[in-house]
Write a protein that binds this DNA or RNA. Sequence first.
DNA 1: CTGTTAGCGCTTTCAG
DNA 2: CTGAAAGCGCTAACAG
Lengths: 328, 328
Amino acid sequence: MKVTSKQIAELCGVTRGTVDRALNNRPGINEATREKIMKVAGELGYRPHFLAQSLVKGETKTLGVVLFDVYNRIFSQLFHSFEAEARRHGYFVYLVLTNKDKALEMEYINNLLDRKVDGIALSPVNMGTTFNTFLKQSGVPIVTFANRVSAKVPFVWIDDKQAMKTAVHHIGSKGYKRILYVSPPLRYKGKSNIYVPEQRHQGFLEACAELPDIRYTVITDHDYMESMLQLIAESDEKPAILCSSDIYALDMMRFLKANHIRVPEQAGIMGFDNIDILHYVDPALTTIDFHVDEIGRIAAEQLIASIQGRDIPQRTNVAYSIIERDSL
Amino acid sequence: MKVTSKQIAELCGVTRGTVDRALNNRPGINEATREKIMKVAGELGYRPHFLAQSLVKGETKTLGVVLFDVYNRIFSQLFHSFEAEARRHGYFVYLVLTNKDKALEMEYINNLLDRKVDGIALSPVNMGTTFNTFLKQSGVPIVTFANRVSAKVPFVWIDDKQAMKTAVHHIGSKGYKRILYVSPPLRYKGKSNIYVPEQRHQGFLEACAELPDIRYTVITDHDYMESMLQLIAESDEKPAILCSSDIYALDMMRFLKANHIRVPEQAGIMGFDNIDILHYVDPALTTIDFHVDEIGRIAAEQLIASIQGRDIPQRTNVAYSIIERDSL
DNA sequence: CTGTTAGCGCTTTCAG
DNA sequence: CTGAAAGCGCTAACAG
């Protein structure tokens, strides 16, 4: 079953060193013996023992990917392109899911390091200098997405702040004077790493500052649905509900429908992410699209470049664009 | 950075064998020296070298999971529970995606075997005796789901045939006399492994045979949407559209809506799988639910049991149930 | 109770 | 051009 280089050596009447030279076409070997060895190896279906190889070479050709989850379409898509790119370069991928559990994230990263992955791609939950130095000390290249750890750890994503500003200006241009900004993750400020929601929030605030005739409310309550009804009722103008992610927008639409508030007649609504299931919802949701598979691909590419000792940018933004549909 | 057992041995003035005994609390060691060794190891932040360990022990505590993709919610959910269960048992998971590419599937399985995974969980695309013996010869335990390879490879799923029969009877009990059965995968019959779609199809046919007053049409065309319109137009009775998976049902609903056919007034529609995004669609889709996370959990559990040398069933069915909503 | 030795399968010197 | 030997870091069998 399991044929080793030693057996091939014996069969060919040479030593393992020579077999190794043949198999890894290293110089300094007679062409005739090389061919013979290759032939025997082929016939026996020889496959090198990866673990032994890794042990001695100190590299595993394996990348670790740490994600919040894979429910969110964004991450499924991201992972698909990441995995494809990694494979193109001969790398394998460990996927672990943290469910945004900080302790679990630490445990998993340690496990990945134990397994001597060559690099780690991470959507971080942890934050702060402790975590930061922990990553630094890990000794392997790291890239992040979906959340940033620090300006020193390479980050591939979009310019969330600018994108959200664009969204607000778009809403303004549609004549809305009242915006309800929904972003539940903001509640975790200080407790968890919410870099991306914060960036979007900042973009929102900055844009509002630029548009003086717009009144806004930021909603982060757990039961933001309820507060929403009140706010809509109190408002004398038709509000635009701007959500920091499509998933909240979808929940909101469901909720509004249940409460007989019609979109976009009584309230406009806009999401962010353009997840693919928007395909199936009605009315079609206006949102911000970005090429998440580009992010996955670039992250893999950069991680591998970094492993190979090349320099990679500390920050890479992919393009985004407004997808105008029927909900606003 | 990297502290080895050898260093600890030197620091403690003992030999590596003793260190090993302490670290893996094996019997036959003085309590005092053990404590000393543990203390030093702790201070130095010793972590065993996983590769070296695996090499000598012949086990990697790693499972390979081969999925079609992770776009389909079914697989995301399945993977989540699989991964969680594996972790509970101290196993790590390699996730690879085949996108239903047969050659890629083979390549990936070989790669996983090279990496000496302890077991493989697989949603197979390949089929036939060649593939079957290939899996047998791999030397590692295997479990399958989402598609069966053969009666000899353990399979965890649901009783698709029976479930589909139940669905048909349910439709019959609602007074429908005409059923359009939509199952695009059936087109790949003979070309790809479509065990599950075939089972569902058979269940459909058997149930129809039991209900003589029902007329039915099976649709597998690529552009099944178009054929659908004709069939609905030709039909003098309100038809029920039964889809072999929710995704087709969703596409169908979208299509019907675009063509101003109202559900369930002009046509009933029923899906299968109860994927979580149904949450967001309107009208709510009647479907068949089964606990896919149970499948993931059981698959991991059985795979690990099998690795540990225990016997596992060749077939495990989890429960299913009809979820009656508004579309039928 | 602890040390010694051998070995997992491969790579990489250094001689010859 | 090829052989011999050492070593990656750990475990396991056998002595003492």
